[in-house]
Amino acid sequence: MKIKLNLIILTAIIFLFAGNLKAQTNTPDFKPSHLKAAEQYLIATGVNTQFGDVLNKMVGASSSQIPEANRASYLKVMSAFMAKYFTWDVLKDRLDKIYAAEFTEDELKQLAAFYNTPLGKKASTKTPVLLQKGMLLGQQAVEDHRPELEQMMKDAFQADAAPAAKE
């Protein structure tokens, strides 16, 4: 049930993201200086150097849901896939646009200036650790109440099936 529930949740997340991607077809044009400011901000935060570590941790964490007999193959395939499609060099230009859409050029320059200070560098190094701890906290909250969540899902799925049974 645990693997089936995780697959259902993962599938739901994929469909949510896929729907959002289709809806975001209008990409605004940004001045080159605005995109450069976004890139400088990302570099100041260390995203360019932390990119691989974050993805490796995500793959490693997700592998715990894979049966032991398939885990090594899963890690090999996911690592190869991530190295091909989820690197700083591959996604940098798209990341620049994401940040340029959320911040003005001046704001990005101010953020980059902050992240180049000693406090900004400390914040940058602590952020991945804090995010990981926050994710673990969320996972633990779900795990602590997993039976309740599973019952809620089971009830919801049964309710979904009930109208179909009447037809």
Rank of each mutant, 00 (worst) to 15 (best):
Y85F: 13
A18L: 06
A162R: 15
K76E: 07
A159Q: 15
E107W: 06
M152V: 00
K109D: 03
T117I: 01
K121R: 07
L7V: 07
L95T: 13
K31A: 08
D96S: 13
P67K: 15
Q158F: 15
A44T: 07
V142H: 01
K22W: 14
P32A: 06
A162Y: 14
D160L: 14
D96A: 09
F114P: 02
A44I: 11
E102N: 06
F17W: 15
D155R: 02
L111C: 02
T87S: 12
K166G: 11
M152Y: 00
F103V: 08
S124Y: 07
T87D: 12
L75G: 04
M1N: 14
I66E: 11
A23K: 13
A69C: 14
Q40S: 09
R146G: 01
A18P: 12
A100C: 06
L130E: 12
N48M: 05
K126G: 10
K57Q: 02
L42K: 13
S73K: 10
L91R: 12
L35V: 04
E102L: 10
G134I: 11
V54Q: 05
K2V: 12
D106E: 07
A161F: 13
L111V: 03
K22G: 15
K92C: 08
K76I: 08
K4Y: 14
I3T: 09
D144S: 02
G52P: 02
L95S: 11
Q110T: 06
A44L: 03
E39S: 12
F114A: 02
T11S: 10
T45I: 06
M58G: 02
K76S: 09
K97N: 11
M58I: 05
K92A: 09
A12R: 01
R71N: 04
P28E: 09
A162G: 14
N70E: 10
K109E: 08
G120W: 00
N70F: 09
A12H: 01
L108G: 03
I43S: 13
E107S: 04
K122S: 01
E107G: 02
Q50W: 12
L10P: 06
G138L: 07
F81E: 05
T27K: 14
P118K: 07
A37C: 10
D144I: 01
W88T: 13
Q139S: 07
K126T: 13
K4F: 14
L35R: 01
Q40R: 08
V142Y: 03
L55A: 10
P118L: 00
A72D: 04
V77G: 08
